[in-house]
Structure formats: structure tokens, C-alpha cells
Amino acid sequence: MYSIGIDVGSVAAKAVIFDGKNVIAKKMIPTGWSPKESGIALYNSLLEHSKIDKNNIRMIVGTGYGRIALPFIDHKVTEITCHGKGAHYLDADIRTVIDIGGQDSKVIRLDEDGNIKDFLMNDKCAAGTGRFLQVMAHALEIDVSQLSDIGRGAEPQNINSMCTVFAESEVISLMASGASKESIAAGLLQSICKKTYSLVSRVGAESKVFFSGGVSKNLLLREYLSEKLGVEIITSEQSQFLGAIGAAVIGFKK
């Protein structure tokens, strides 16, 4: 028997198959314009790719903002609970999850069983999220994946605006005044780090601290955060699948 967890986020849709012990298959596709269509496509291709018979799937749990659009799921669970369970599955010692995705950032505190003790989400603007970095990278005329390498070793420029729109013009005028791309890139990551730090400080960071979401791939940001919080921060290659894994784990137990 298997369970499937499917996490339809604002940027990517992710799904995994879980056999009660291990994740035996996973897949990710861009969400595109229709969370429903991409959810269905993802589900079908995951089944095809894993060669598992539909009848052996006991439970399908959906999460992520697109979960409401999925017609084939048995249960809906919020991404917050799923992220908590997913992190607990990866490492039972994790007590804090910092997740920075495309449109939101959140901090989750867990107890020893992976249950949510407390959580916080950013408010409705894009400040401090992947979207913010994307817009800024665009203004710097680089790819968002290059920010970490370019910024490494540079003295960070002070970026004062947290609002995406104002920060963008701040970046443009910094470039015009001759500031280096390196220092601006470092400054942008510092500003995300500060914003995240203030969010984390409100619930407290108990170690182990796990960093997930698309933005967690940014190495330099991870280092900044670890320094600022004074704790080691761990990540995992599976981190983008955290929500889907958590959903599958919850589904298996249902």
C-alpha cells in the first residue's frame, strides 16, 4: 500500500509516493496557469513513472495553495502542517523550519513528534520571498541562481526598502551610482536575511533549524542566516518536496 502527497504551490507542483517508510518516487513540474491541470498532469505522470497501480494507492493528500483545485484527492491539509510533518520525517530532531518559497515565507516550530507548536507567515506583500529575489536579480540582469555566487565575498550594500517595488528602483539607482553587482547581490541577500530573522525571532529558533523552499538553495543566504541566528542551519535536496512528503506521511497514517 502507498500514499501520495501532492503539493501545488504558486511556482511548482510537487508530488511523491510513500510506502510507509520511504519516498519511492517523486516528481515536480511548473504550476503554470492552472493549478488543477498541472495537478492532474503531475499525478498521472507520477503514477506512470513509478509504475504503481492506482488501486494500490490508499490515500492522496493535497496541500499548497492549489490544493482546493484538485478533484482527485482524499484530504486537504495546509502546507504548514505538511511542512512540519515532512521535516520531521527527514530528521526527527528538527524543531524549527524556515521556509521561503515563491510568494510566502513562514517559520514553523515543531515538538518532538513533528506537531506544530507555533507558526508565523509573512504578511501579504512579497517582501522577503523568492519573488523579491527574482525581481531584484532581473534588475541586476542576472539569473536568480547566480545571486549567491556573485555576492560571495563582497561587502554588502545597504538596501533599505523591503517593498519589492521600491527596492527595485533602489537597486537600479545603486547600479547607476556605480555600486558593484557583487555588493548589491550580497546586500539583497542580507536584506532577506534581516527580514527572515525578524520573523524567526518572533517564534524563536530552537535547533535543529531546517531551511526549506526554493530560496533555501541560496548558499550565501543560508550562511548569513546561520550567522545571524547563531545556530547551524541544515537543508536537504528533498527540501522542495517537504510539503509533498509531509502530505504523503499524513496520508499514510490516515
Binding site: 495553495y65 491539509v77 495546509t78 502546507e79 504548514i80 502542517t81 510566502d104 506537531n115 506544530i116 507548536k117 507558526f119 507567515m121 504578511d123 501579504k124
Partner: peptide, 23 residues
């Protein structure tokens, strides 16, 4: 929950409320 009268963040609030209820 910090919000205003508009509906623009209703989806976000729903996620937070549901997660809260799940706890």
C-alpha cells in the same frame, strides 16, 4: 491575524486559520 477590510488576503488568512485549527 493582522489584516484590513479588503478581501485581497483572504486566501492567505484561510491557510493560516486552517493550519491553526489543524494544531
Amino acid at each position: 491575524i493582522e489584516t484590513d477590510y479588503s478581501d485581497s488576503d483572504a486566501g492567505q488568512i484561510k491557510t493560516r486559520v486552517e493550519a491553526f485549527i489543524e494544531t
